[in-house]
Design a protein around this nucleic acid. Structure first.
Lengths: 179, 179
DNA sequence: ATCAGCATGTAAGGCGTTACATGATTCA
DNA sequence: TGAATCATGTAACGCCTTACATGCTGAT
């Protein structure tokens, strides 16, 4: 039952780049990292409150121009230390749940057409997603001398490379199933 | 809050191949499908009880040779229908959580050596896992005329192909980071 | 005026893990 | 005789999602 709220680390990581509101954090997660991590408001806001209580992040007093409620957070020294401790920790679980592969594995319970259709759907989704990643890639390529951008770039190329492997596999699988 | 216990489908899928005990099911999950799905006793046994109550699976009366407690389950007609309905359902969420990529993305908070080390660890794990997959592959190749084996084979090649893409990416990433 | 997007948060509940509890059997 | 494996199950608890609740702001 070790405390293992990965969302905390995601938030600390994002805050190590810039000060952000909970809403901003959600947008950052939905943007560049959503293909390998997800997060909802229902986990972000409680995490921010908890981390504020334990001194990992700080509320910034906004020059409340409007009166609109908006809480921007800043990472503290303690928060940065926690982030670095996690980065240095050698264990990392990559927890993959491919429902598509599950359906493929149990495909024998239905007609082949069903499996072929499921592969098509998977492929279509990947084709759409890879386009987005390629756009990210080309905009990141221009600033590889920026340290952070280099890291973003590497995650994006990871995505593109694996997605391309998926697409090649789809073609092979289709061929095998159509025989 | 839609009921969405995927473990139920995993179990129904496995039972569509053969009658199994809860313990057997755990072994099957840890074997061929663990690289894309996981499951623990704490979810398997409650799922079996629930599915028995709703008539998706049936206990088999063992010719209790020994007296040793052992409950083998059989999938019912209703269970098979549920499995097929799921296979035909076009939505499939492939939920990937790569903690390694998260650490990579936030790598800027530490020295490059840390990131390089994390890539090494990732690569070592993949190299080990790909060997296992290749063994599965070569034993499955002999029986591709068997419908079920064809499906197992396809999931295994999916794993091998993507893992090979990971390995290529590791080399590229290392090169970029060492400049 | 209306609607999309900005912005924060809570409540209920589902899913799943880890740890625990228990005991039989097989094999060295 | 002791360890590994077979075998079933429960309890506690953690994490997260979905849905709900609320209200402001900016653009059309």
């Amino acid at each position: 039952m070790a405390k293992d709220r990965k969302i905390d680390l995601v938030i600390l990581g994002l805050l190590s780049h810039e000060d952000l509101t909970g809403y901003d954090i959600k947008k950052r997660i939905d943007g560049g990292i959503s293909f390998f991590w997800k997060g909802s408001f229902g986990s972000i806001y409680p995490s921010l409150s908890a981390m504020e209580r334990s001194g990992l992040v700080q509320r910034l007093k906004e020059d409340n121009e409007s009166g609109r409620e908006k809480i921007r957070y800043h990472i503290t020294k303690k928060g940065k230390d926690q982030l670095r401790t996690w980065l240095k920790d050698e264990k990392a679980d990559n927890d993959l749940k491919y429902e598509t592969l599950l359906k493929l594995y149990f495909g024998g319970a239905e007609e082949r057409d069903i499996t072929l259709r499921n592969i098509d759907i998977f492929e279509e989704k990947i084709r759409r997603d890879i386009e987005v990643l390629k756009m990210y890639k080309s905009s990141l390529e221009k600033y590889l001398d920026n340290e952070d951008h280099l890291y973003y770039y590497l995650t994006v190329t990871f995505g593109i490379d694996t997605y391309e492997a998926y697409l090649k596999w789809c073609a092979k699988a289709r061929k095998l199933l159509k025989r």
